[in-house]
């Protein structure tokens, strides 16, 4: 089975940023990682490769040159091939634009299975995967927590729904699945594979992105959210905050 995993590089979730004129300003040097659910998608791809002899796993990322780091990690985890589609990610590209660039690159390669995270850790839109499936004409299921080859061909997948309900599907190949985090923790890269990945040449491509031109939605700007509750921030040292919280909870008869 030829498997493609789409991996997004994101900022570290605790990176402190500021907002200036509706744009995010990040500290330098930035701390980056592979988006959490994409890592679970990669793990699912690698597990299928382990189970199905003759399979190969590709990793692709759309981002600036620094996004190469997530591809090297993917190679270290066991991916066979990696490709970087060069494009600036700040301000972020609209999902339809990302899906179109990925589709154009992936189409001639005719993958049997495409895996993405259910949503990126930062933007949380959940749209690139299903849009990519549509552009490539693939069957699609989202929020998948289990994938297994079906005896009759194709895959059996388990989707997770609201309140923890499950939906089981038999899905034909070629297909695209968006993967939700699960108990199957992404593997660590092996040292030998990491060393090899460090030296590997990663093919990079420069898709025509035309960022901004003809986008179906335009980003007007970012703002801090308002607080929906009192949001009393406790002051002082740790002990003083503990005293204050104790008093507040006693006062409200919650303790």
């Amino acid at each position: 089975m030829r498997i493609l995993t789409c991996l997004k590089q994101v900022r570290h979730p605790e990176s402190l940023f500021s907002l200036e004129e509706g744009r995010a300003l990040w500290p330098e040097p930035g701390l980056f990682k592979m988006s959490a659910c994409d890592e679970f998608a990669l793990e699912e791809g690698l597990s299928l490769k382990d189970a199905l002899a003759g399979s190969e796993v590709w990793a692709v990322s759309l981002g600036p040159a620094r996004a190469e780091a997530v591809l090297r990690r993917a190679l270290g985890m066991g991916a066979d091939q990696a490709a970087l589609l060069l494009g600036e990610d700040e301000p972020p590209l609209r999902p339809a634009r990302v899906a179109a660039a990925l589709a154009e690159w992936a189409r001639p390669k005719a993958f049997d299975l495409v895996l993405t995270g259910v949503m990126s850790e930062d933007a949380m839109q959940g749209t690139v995967g299903p849009m990519l499936a549509e552009l490539l004409g693939l069957a699609c299921a989202t929020s998948v927590v289990e994938i297994a080859p079906a005896p009759e061909g194709g895959l059996r997948v388990l989707r997770e729904m609201e309140g923890g309900r499950r939906q089981a599907l038999k899905i034909n190949l070629p297909a695209l699945l968006t993967v939700q985090s699960s108990a199957r923790a992404p593997r660590y890269p092996t040292l030998s594979a990491l060393l090899k990945a460090k030296k590997a040449t990663i093919a990079s491509h420069a898709p025509e992105l035309n960022a901004g031109a003809g986008d179906r939605e335009r980003l007007l700007g970012l703002a801090w959210p308002g607080r929906t509750r009192a949001g009393l921030t406790l002051e002082g040292d740790t002990a003083a905050k503990a005293d204050r919280l104790y008093a507040i909870l006693r006062e409200r008869a919650l303790l």
Partner: peptide, 8 residues
């Protein structure tokens, strides 16, 4: 942005 900002 990780739930920290609103976008318009």
């Amino acid at each position: 942005l990780f739930g920290k900002a609103l976008e318009a």
